[in-house]
């Protein structure tokens, strides 16, 4: 299942809304960490609650758990990085919907917690890494800096387009192509 390209496409689609506001590497790192912890914790908690949940109630319980985790992490993050968190705070609750979008993957809600944690961490980790990379590239190409440090603005003018949501979409497309090429290459070598 983890080798299935469609599963990873679904994860990429679930982080796309956040890329619109993650303009800096720091804000994308915050969003990535919150996303990873949320997805992993939901995947661990759901199997534990599995016996009490029905097919209809599971998605809503998943959203409520995710919102609780996101709320707590946002509060902590606001205390540590106020400016970076405020710029993305409005979009953070959307991570809760990420877990619903991943619902068809998580059909077996009664899976072992350790297996669920591994699966959640893998899928959440992929989404978080993708989100962080988009943030890094947006800051690098759009502002010419990385984590606030100037890289090349004295030599070249940064491309403003990459700061916009359209630029984020283009970066997402480029990263997806890189992912496809990597899968193709590793597939030929028999690594996956």
């Amino acid at each position: 299942m983890l080798k299935d390209r469609q599963v990873y496409y679904k994860i990429i689609l679930s982080v796309v809304p956040l890329t619109a506001v993650c303009n800096t590497a720091l804000s994308s790192l915050i969003a990535a960490v919150i996303s990873l912890i949320t997805v992993a914790s939901v995947w661990v908690l759901l199997p534990l609650l599995g016996r009490f949940l029905t097919e209809k109630t599971a998605p809503f319980v998943r959203i409520i758990i995710a919102l609780g985790v996101i709320g707590t992490l946002t509060l902590i993050s606001t205390m540590l990085f106020k400016d970076a968190t405020q710029s993305i705070a409005l979009y953070l609750p959307l991570i809760a919907l990420t877990t619903v979008m991943l619902h068809p993957i998580n059909e077996n809600t009664k899976a072992l917690p350790l297996y669920a944690l591994k699966l959640g961490a893998t899928l959440g980790g992929f989404g978080s890494a993708f989100l962080f990379l988009v943030g890094v590239l947006k800051e690098l190409l759009g502002m010419g800096s990385l984590f606030g440090l100037d890289i090349y603005t004295k030599l070249f003018a940064p491309i403003e387009f990459f700061k916009t949501p359209g630029g984020a979409l283009l970066i997402c497309a480029a990263l997806t192509i890189v992912y496809n090429l990597a899968v193709k290459y590793l597939g030929k070598r028999g690594a996956i």
Partner: peptide
């Protein structure tokens, strides 16, 4: 195949 599917969707949206 590398571009078909999601990458193309994202490029069109961009």
């Amino acid at each position: 195949d590398t571009v078909r599917g999601l990458p193309m969707t994202l490029i069109i949206a961009a």
